[in-house]
């Protein structure tokens, strides 16, 4: 990498968004369940979310899939959504009934209820 390459990367970054008309599997307002998976490979689905039920609050569009990118496999573009989980769904009744957790999850992380 040259200094010029570095300056370009610093200024422009690396877009992870993909121009695609791939249909979304889920719509805003849908209740979804985070899959229970325990891959020995890379995943951006954390343990504390797996198996929990949340609500789609926003569809961010189509992005490359980090879980495969991290293993140098295909880019496997898919929709990524902002998903809201109540604090009590994640942590039980000791958590505040007012609070919630938002996390960005991909089509492959989610299943319909």
């Amino acid at each position: 990498m040259t200094a010029q390459d570095a300056r370009v990367l610093l200024a422009k970054g690396l877009s992870c968004q993909v121009d695609s008309n791939l249909p979304a599997k889920f719509q805003v307002g849908d209740h979804v369940k985070a899959k229970v998976i325990h891959p020995k490979t890379y995943t951006r689905l954390p343990r504390y979310i797996r198996g929990k039920v949340g609500t789609i609050v926003k569809d961010h569009g189509v992005y490359v899939f980090p879980d495969t990118m991290g293993q140098r496999l295909s880019t496997k573009p898919q929709h990524v959504y902002s998903v809201r989980f109540t604090a009590q769904e994640l942590w039980g009744l000791d958590a505040s009934p007012k609070d919630s957790l938002y996390i960005d999850l991909f089509d492959d992380h989610l299943e319909a209820l």
Partner: peptide, 19 residues
């Protein structure tokens, strides 16, 4: 590490390596 992000390893591969 930054200098290898594009030409050599995707950022996610670097994250996975530390894991």
């Amino acid at each position: 590490s930054f200098a290898t992000f594009v030409n050599y390893f995707p950022v996610d591969e670097t994250r996975h390596a530390s894991e």
